[in-house]
Simulated assay, not measured.
Amino acid sequence: MRQKQGRKMMQLRKCLKITRVVQNANDEPVLEFGSLSIDVVNHIVRKEGEILKLTSTEMNPIENAYRFK
């Protein structure tokens, strides 16, 4: 389990280097990194359209990176 979480974080760190911000249907920001999209407001992460289940520990660095960009 811990190894899977580590791999997820490594993938996210790699992807966080390229950022594009788009709007979702509710006009809220969604970050896109190639096939990865992050809806920071609703705490939803998708890879190739499939929702990834992240813990709050995994989601916090992503939210912080967005806020302090």
Results as ranks from 00 to 15, higher is better:
2 R>Q: 13
2 R>G: 12
2 R>I: 06
2 R>T: 10
3 Q>S: 12
4 K>D: 09
4 K>T: 14
4 K>E: 15
4 K>M: 13
4 K>W: 02
6 G>Q: 15
7 R>E: 15
7 R>C: 01
7 R>T: 09
8 K>T: 13
8 K>F: 10
9 M>R: 07
9 M>E: 09
9 M>L: 13
10 M>G: 01
10 M>T: 11
12 L>A: 14
12 L>D: 00
13 R>I: 06
13 R>H: 06
13 R>M: 07
14 K>P: 04
14 K>N: 12
14 K>R: 11
14 K>D: 13
15 C>Q: 08
15 C>W: 05
15 C>P: 00
16 L>R: 12
16 L>A: 08
18 I>E: 14
19 T>F: 05
19 T>K: 14
19 T>Q: 15
19 T>P: 03
20 R>E: 15
20 R>W: 09
20 R>A: 06
22 V>Y: 11
22 V>C: 10
22 V>R: 12
22 V>W: 05
23 Q>A: 10
23 Q>T: 05
23 Q>Y: 06
24 N>K: 03
24 N>T: 04
25 A>R: 07
26 N>G: 09
26 N>K: 10
27 D>W: 02
28 E>G: 02
28 E>I: 03
28 E>Q: 13
28 E>K: 08
29 P>V: 11
29 P>Y: 06
29 P>T: 11
30 V>I: 15
30 V>Y: 03
30 V>Q: 04
30 V>H: 00
30 V>E: 01
31 L>Q: 01
32 E>T: 07
33 F>Y: 12
33 F>N: 07
34 G>K: 01
34 G>R: 03
34 G>E: 00
35 S>V: 07
35 S>H: 01
36 L>V: 12
36 L>K: 01
37 S>W: 00
38 I>C: 14
38 I>M: 11
38 I>G: 00
39 D>W: 09
39 D>S: 10
39 D>I: 04
40 V>T: 12
40 V>P: 02
41 V>T: 11
41 V>Y: 10
41 V>I: 12
42 N>H: 14
42 N>R: 08
42 N>E: 09
42 N>P: 02
43 H>D: 11
43 H>M: 11
43 H>L: 08
43 H>E: 13
44 I>E: 11
45 V>L: 06
46 R>V: 02
46 R>F: 05
47 K>Q: 11
47 K>G: 02
47 K>L: 12
48 E>L: 09
48 E>S: 13
48 E>C: 09
49 G>E: 03
49 G>T: 02
49 G>Q: 05
49 G>K: 08
50 E>S: 10
50 E>I: 05
51 I>M: 05
51 I>R: 11
51 I>D: 08
52 L>T: 04
52 L>N: 06
56 S>A: 06
56 S>W: 03
56 S>V: 00
57 T>V: 13
59 M>K: 05
59 M>D: 07
60 N>T: 13
61 P>R: 04
61 P>N: 08
61 P>T: 08
62 I>Y: 00
62 I>W: 04
63 E>L: 12
63 E>K: 12
63 E>V: 15
63 E>M: 04
63 E>Q: 06
64 N>K: 12
65 A>N: 03
66 Y>D: 09
66 Y>F: 15
66 Y>G: 00
67 R>K: 15
67 R>A: 09
67 R>L: 12
68 F>C: 04
69 K>A: 02
69 K>I: 04
